[in-house]
Nucleic acid binder design. Structure first.
Length: 291
DNA sequence: AACGAACTCAACCGCGCTCTC
DNA sequence: AGAGAGCGCGGTTGAGTTCGT
């Protein structure tokens, strides 16, 4: 049993949008607002499928879109967000006002990938690409779970505590083919051997202030958390576990989760803090502000 | 000037998720 | 509980544009 088509294909236009079609769509959305894309084309007098209308509006016609080239700051932000989130273009776009996921995806594929290759960085892994010596050194000195950030001619190893002392002595702050390995201790703001321009770079590093647990990290969740994860989403307030008498910040919005939906994390913001709730495979965390 | 190659990006496609009935 | 509708996402396509010879 196949999926029904989103529209009657033989009665819809395809390809580039005309100015008249754009104007019809703009006029309709100005009057009626976004939403109900399936019925929109007919209501707006457009021979397009709803998906096509939605895409045209979101990627091209929306008034809050930023036009023009990406700035260096946006480039860096995209690279850092991609390092953190992978190909989650919608999440990345949520962090760049006026940019769309499609635009960022295209920009990544046409510009940034090449830029990273030119820097000798693998755009998928964000690890050094073509310098066998550097790669081999990192493979030797740095545990695979370490977070690595490439910066100019430096490779910054976040969370230095998981790098053994002997490896720190042997490799950190040494230059290999012009690339310097730098350790950064996650418990302190200072990095060992970090020069002023490196610090300036690190200040630009992304601080999303996040706590995200993926399903693979489930074993790390204690029984208390699991109890929270199993609780019903709505209504059953007695099962809501009181964790700390503090206010909190819902991270769902800032991450771009639950767009267009009311987040259920922040119910009873007073003294009750839901530390984690779950939608199938995604845990959503609610962070007390005093942590 | 002409042609093909390379590049860009708007648009399309198909899948997965959520919601409703 | 399960099927279908609707939406959003990521990957891919292809027409238009730019570049190189």
């Amino acid at each position: 049993m196949g999926r029904s088509p989103c529209c009657e294909k033989q009665h819809t236009n395809k390809g580039a949008w005309t100015k008249e079609e754009d104007q019809r769509l703009i006029n309709y959305i100005k009057t009626n607002g976004e939403g109900c894309w399936r019925s929109l084309p007919k209501a707006a007098g457009l021979l397009r499928c709803g998906k096509s209308c939605r895409l045209r509006w979101i990627n091209y016609l929306r008034p809050d879109l930023k036009r023009g080239n990406f700035t260096e700051q946006e480039d860096d932000l995209i690279i850092n967000l991609h390092n953190l989130l992978g190909n989650k273009w919608s999440l990345i776009a949520a962090r760049l006002p006026g940019r769309t996921d499609n635009e960022i995806k295209n920009y990544w594929n046409t510009h940034i990938k090449r830029k990273l290759y030119n820097r000798g960085v693998d755009p998928q892994t964000h690890r050094p690409l073509n310098d066998a010596t550097v790669s081999a050194t990192i493979a030797t000195a740095v545990p695979p779970q370490a977070q690595i950030i490439t910066s100019h001619n430096n490779i910054i190893i976040k969370d230095a505590s998981i790098v053994s002392n002997s490896n720190k002595d042997n490799y950190v702050n040494t230059k290999i083919n012009g690339t310097k390995l730098v350790c950064e201790d996650s418990n302190s703001n200072s990095s060992s051997g970090v020069s002023s321009d490196q610090e300036a770079y690190q200040h630009q590093q992304l601080n999303l202030d996040l706590s995200i647990g993926l399903p693979s990290s489930r074993p790390q969740i204690n029984t208390h958390s699991l109890k929270l994860l199993q609780q019903p989403q709505d209504g059953d307030e007695q099962q809501e576990t009181k964790v700390a008498p503090s206010h909190g910040v819902c991270l769902c919005y800032s991450l771009g989760f639950l767009r267009n939906k009311v987040c259920c994390c922040n119910r009873d913001i007073g003294n009750t803090v839901t530390t984690a709730v779950t939608d199938n495979n995604m845990y959503r965390f609610y962070r007390p502000m005093n942590i």
